[in-house]
C-alpha cells in the first residue's frame, strides 16, 4: 500500500462545465470516503471509552457504523470506477489484440453501466418502500430509509462513470479503463 498519486488528482478529462461538475463530484466523493472512515474509527473507539470510563455504552454505535459503511461503499464504488480500480480478471482480455480489446471494453463499460442504472432504479424503489413502512432504527430512532440515500446516488454515479468510459473509448484512439485511466497496467504497481 504505497502512496496513491493517481488518487490525489481530481482533474476531470471532460471538457468545460461538465469537467468542473465532474471534478467537484470527485472531490465530494473522496471527502465522504475519508470522513466515513475517520468517523467510523472515532465512533468505535468512543464506544470503548464510554463503556470503560463512563460505564455507559453508546447505544447507537453499531447503527452509526452500519450507516457509515453504506456511505463508504456507495461513495467508493463510483470513485473506484472513476479511477479504474474495480476488481476484474483481465487475463484473457489482456491476451486479446487491441482491435478486439477496444470493442470488448466498450461493451463491458456499457453493460456495466446498464446494470448500475438498473440497480439505481430499484434502490430508489427500495427506499420508497422503506419510507412508506416507516421502519426506524431501534437505537437512533431515525427512519431506515434515510440511511440508504447514498445507495441510488452511488449506483447512478457509477453508471455515469462507465457510460463516460464507453464514450471515451468510442471517441479516442487509445483504450481507457475509466475516464481518466489508460489501460496497460501490467508494468506498474498502481492499477488493479
Amino acid at each position: 500500500m504505497s502512496d496513491d498519486p493517481d488518487l490525489s488528482t481530481h482533474d476531470s478529462s471532460l471538457p468545460g462545465v461538465l469537467g468542473i461538475i465532474d471534478s467537484t463530484i470527485s472531490r465530494i466523493e473522496s471527502f465522504l470516503l475519508a470522513a466515513g472512515v475517520l468517523l467510523m474509527a472515532l465512533n468505535t473507539v468512543s464506544n470503548v471509552v464510554g463503556r470503560f470510563v463512563f460505564q455507559s455504552s453508546l447505544f447507537f454505535s453499531e447503527e452509526l457504523n452500519r450507516i457509515l459503511i453504506i456511505l463508504i461503499t456507495f461513495a467508493g464504488i463510483s470513485y473506484a470506477a472513476r479511477h479504474g480500480r474495480h476488481i476484474r480478471m483481465s487475463a484473457i482480455y489482456d491476451a486479446l489484440p487491441s482491435t478486439a480489446r477496444k470493442p470488448l471494453m466498450v461493451g463491458i463499460a456499457f453493460i456495466t453501466a446498464i446494470f448500475m442504472f438498473g440497480l439505481c432504479y430499484y434502490s430508489i424503489g427500495y427506499i420508497e418502500t422503506q419510507a412508506s413502512r416507516g421502519r426506524v432504527l431501534p437505537a437512533l430512532q431515525i427512519p431506515v430509509w434515510i440511511t440508504l440515500v447514498w445507495v441510488p446516488v452511488g449506483f447512478f454515479m457509477t453508471g455515469m462513470q462507465y457510460t463516460l468510459t464507453a464514450i471515451k473509448n468510442l471517441t479516442s484512439r487509445d483504450i481507457y479503463l475509466s475516464t481518466s485511466v489508460l489501460e496497460g497496467y501490467e508494468e506498474t504497481e498502481q492499477e488493479i
Binding site: 463503556r51 460505564q55 455507559s56 455504552s57 447505544f59 454505535s61 453499531e62 447503527e63 431501534p138 437505537a139 430512532q141
Partner: peptide, 20 residues
Amino acid sequence: TNPLLVESYKAFGATPTPLP
C-alpha cells in the same frame, strides 16, 4: 438493541451493552 430492554437493565442497575 431495543430501547425498552436498555431501559429495563438501566433501571435494574446494570450497564446495558448492546452487542450484535
